[in-house]
């Protein structure tokens, strides 16, 4: 564990808490893509099956349980509790366009052809593109609430900080995982356009709006 990895985890935790608080306090999930949240639940479920097979640390276990539980709680809030506020007309990205290619890729490019490892690989690939329905929704409506921008920024920073962590681990531990690194870079690149808008608009006190 190094400071970059820890900051990445904290950023990830913060993103989830911001999202849950936004929905809970405003009693609304307007502007939030339920499809991205379903994909994230799928990501955590398939990745953290190793909770049953290997133990890393109490920290590791606690975070995994939190990520799984919070992802299902978010889906519950969007699709059941506050479903009247869910913006389904703008959440039209087709999940199968992401899940199916990623599934094929996980079977072809992985470290080991075993069920758990293929599911882990699938979750790494899926996470890298899981935010696309949300970004698609923002581009479709041309705007995002400021709190939603903070959520997206924290979520994007998490994998960006992991990249720094991987550079650090490569130099100081000789450790690297090419699947995680390439997927992590793809994931971070997808946020670049949003990062630019966040810095130039949201941090200057304006709402995030896209040019028509």
């Amino acid at each position: 564990m190094n400071v970059f990895r820890l900051s990445g985890d904290v950023s990830h935790l913060l993103a989830i808490l911001i999202l849950l608080m936004k929905i809970w306090k405003t009693r609304s999930c307007a502007g939030i893509s339920g499809k991205s949240q379903i994909l994230f639940a799928l990501v955590y479920t398939t990745r953290y099956l190793d909770l049953f097979t290997s133990f890393i640390s109490p920290y590791n276990t606690a975070m995994k349980v939190f990520f799984i539980a919070s992802s299902y709680a978010t889906i519950y809030l969007i699709y059941l509790k506050f479903k009247a506020t869910y913006d389904r007309n703008h959440d039209t990205f087709r999940m199968e366009f992401l899940v199916l290619p990623v599934l094929v890729l996980a079977f072809v490019v992985n470290h080991d052809f075993t069920p758990l490892e293929i599911l882990w690989t699938f979750s790494i690939y899926l996470e890298s593109v899981a935010i696309l329905p949300q970004l698609f929704m923002v581009s479709k409506t041309g705007q995002a609430e400021t709190i939603t921008s903070h959520y997206l920024f924290a979520l994007g920073m998490y994998r960006a900080l992991y990249i720094v962590n991987w550079v650090y681990r490569y130099y100081f531990e000789g450790f690297y995982d090419l699947i995680a690194i390439i997927a992590g870079v793809v994931q971070t690149v997808l946020y670049c356009d949003f990062f630019y808008l966040y810095v130039t608009k949201v941090l200057k006190g304006k709402q995030l709006t896209l040019p028509a």
Binding site: R47, S54, N60, M63, K64, D112, D177
Partner: peptide, 10 residues
């Protein structure tokens, strides 16, 4: 799974 496939990151 081999020990080096123990994924220690989240």
């Amino acid at each position: 799974r081999t020990p080096d496939l123990l994924h220690d990151e989240l």
